[in-house]
Amino acid sequence: MSDDEDKVWPTGLNLREAEEVHSYLIDGTRVFGAIALIAHLLVAVSTPWLG
């Protein structure tokens, strides 16, 4: 990996741009994970599974 900030990679993005796109993906996954966790907890409260 080169550290050249301005090099445009075959994706059409340079390093910082790619990192930003990646950060949206990571943020989305985190929020999604938190939401899924809360939803599961709530379902477990009303209709418990696993005993």
Binding site: A34, A39, L42, S46
Partner: peptide, 20 residues
């Protein structure tokens, strides 16, 4: 999306549905 995803379960728990 997140709000809608947890809303139905939240409402069911709020209304005391099932074991809630």
């Amino acid at each position: 999306f997140g709000g809608f995803a947890i809303m139905p379960f939240a409402l069911l728990v709020l209304s005391g549905y099932g074991e809630a």
